[in-house]
Design a protein around this nucleic acid. Structure first.
Length: 428
DNA sequence: TCTGGGGTCCTAGGACCC
DNA sequence: TCTGGGGTCCTAGGACCC
């Protein structure tokens, strides 16, 4: 049976999550900034119309936002991740097989679905809209790459009514490829698009017609796969059982760059604690970690310095106490004081594997599960709110803490911040 | 003054081995 | 002048994704 792939994604995801809980944001320009209120990462259609681009630094567009009464929000990842989990739960009720591809995108397997595929997809998107309050689009195709391309067209075209069904309409594919710039194809970034344009390949259709030898020479094996997928030959499948990840990073830019070791030590402890929590949440353990500190990379006028050091964790662990201890000693090893000021620090957990898969030997007893202390910490933090129980004392106001000047409430992850709905009796 | 955070895969080149 | 030919493994860097 011929495989059929679908891709559903949330329109302007972070903006839509904010709007779902705050109706005053409907029909006005809304912009969500990255961590540290650094740059634009989600834009409502009104903000896109102002010419504000993805990744534009806030300080360069602040005036434009002010002049146009743009509602500028800090990013609230607790909210977006919570909504993303609800999205997955909803989709799994609606379709037999789904793969979460990113925080706002889900691939679905529509192979063998009877009836009109387009109508079926409209039903899915309406259910998501109704149950979560999140506007979304769906594209289908004989490959993931074509489903993704169809989804982009569904977003652009008003006539499509948020669904483009290329799988059910093979006769539309050529037109769809022709209308898509090669740089907008999933897997073709700026560097590849530039190489392709030199040989006259400007659209997805051009790429699909290029011979494999040329594609391979220009883009390597990944390019050959992408070109094949554009021709309708599936290479990627819907992965319903994702492989456990190989690495896990927690890092943040500082609100204010600093050269103070104690300040950075505190940041590293907070990040290492978060990283350990993430590992336990996925039943993983790490065999090594890297701690790094960087100076602000865009400030070419300032002295640049990147330092890092690795610590081995034997036996592999997810224990906050051991991970924090290792991270602090790695930081000491990496530390280079100087006239420069560090602007960012982070912890990268590596050599990950499932805790249940670690085997011991004569000299090493593996850690098969978190200690009762870790277990208790996780349960308290998940039941009440993130950060209810932490290691040692850290200040919520330290100058390394990232800026977040316009943060919305933790509407769905903190009991004390749940919005109150008031039902008024009908007017007589 | 001011530019995010977190991932994956591929490739080239060096180290090392026989 | 002129010094083999393959393997494997590891790492760093690039490219891509959201």
């Amino acid at each position: 049976m011929k495989p059929v792939y679908g891709l559903l994604d949330i329109n302007n995801c972070f903006v839509s999550c904010e709007r779902a809980f705050n109706p005053s944001l409907e029909n006005v320009p809304v912009l969500v900034l990255s961590a540290n209120d650094g740059c634009a990462i989600a834009r409502s259609s009104e903000v896109k119309a102002l010419g504000i681009k993805m990744g534009d630094p806030h300080f360069k567009i602040a005036r434009l936002c002010e002049d146009n009464a743009v509602r500028v929000l800090s990013s609230n990842f607790a909210l977006y991740c919570g909504m993303s989990m609800r999205l997955m739960a909803e989709i799994q009720e609606l379709v037999p097989a789904a793969e979460q591809y990113s925080v706002d995108e889900v691939f679905i397997d529509l192979t063998g679905m009877p009836g009109d595929l387009g109508e079926y997809c409209r039903g899915i998107r309406k259910a998501i809209r109704r149950n979560l309050g999140l506007p979304n689009c769906v594209g289908t195709g004989p490959t993931k790459t074509l489903a993704k391309l169809a989804n982009q067209l569904a977003k652009k075209s008003k006539a499509a009514d948020s669904v483009v069904d290329l799988a059910g309409h093979p006769e539309w594919v050529e037109k769809a490829l022709e209308r898509t710039s090669v740089g907008d194809v999933w897997g073709i970034g700026a560097a590849s698009a530039a190489k392709l344009s030199k040989v006259g390949v400007l659209t997805a259709l051009d790429l699909s017609r290029l011979d494999d030898r040329t594609v391979s020479r220009l883009l390597g094996v990944s390019g050959v796969r992408t070109a094949g997928e554009l021709r309708g030959v599936p290479f990627y499948e819907v992965e319903t059982q994702p492989e456990p990840r190989q690495s896990c990073m927690v890092s943040r830019s500082f609100g204010n760059p600093t050269g103070d070791f104690e300040m950075i030590r505190e940041a590293v402890i907070v990040h290492a604690t978060a990283a350990a929590e993430k590992l336990r949440g996925e039943s993983l353990v790490a065999g090594a970690l890297t701690v790094f500190c960087e100076t602000p990379r865009f400030r070419k006028d300032l002295l640049q310095k990147n330092v890092s050091a690795i610590a081995r964790l034997m036996p592999p662990t997810s224990d906050t106490l051991r991970i924090v201890k290792a991270a602090v000693s790695a930081l000491k090893a990496a530390w280079e004081p100087g006239p420069w000021l560090y602007g960012k620090a982070g912890v990268l957990m590596a050599d990950l594997c499932l805790a249940s898969n670690v085997s011991g030997d004569l000299f090493m007893q593996p850690e098969k599960k978190p200690t009762p202390l870790m277990d208790a910490m996780d349960r308290l933090n998940s039941r009440f709110a993130r950060g209810t129980v932490t290691l040692g004392t850290t200040s919520k106001t330290s100058s390394w803490r990232p800026r977040a000047d316009n943060l919305s409430a933790d509407w769905i992850s903190d009991w004390s911040q749940i919005p109150v709905a008031v039902a008024k009796p009908p007017q007589s």
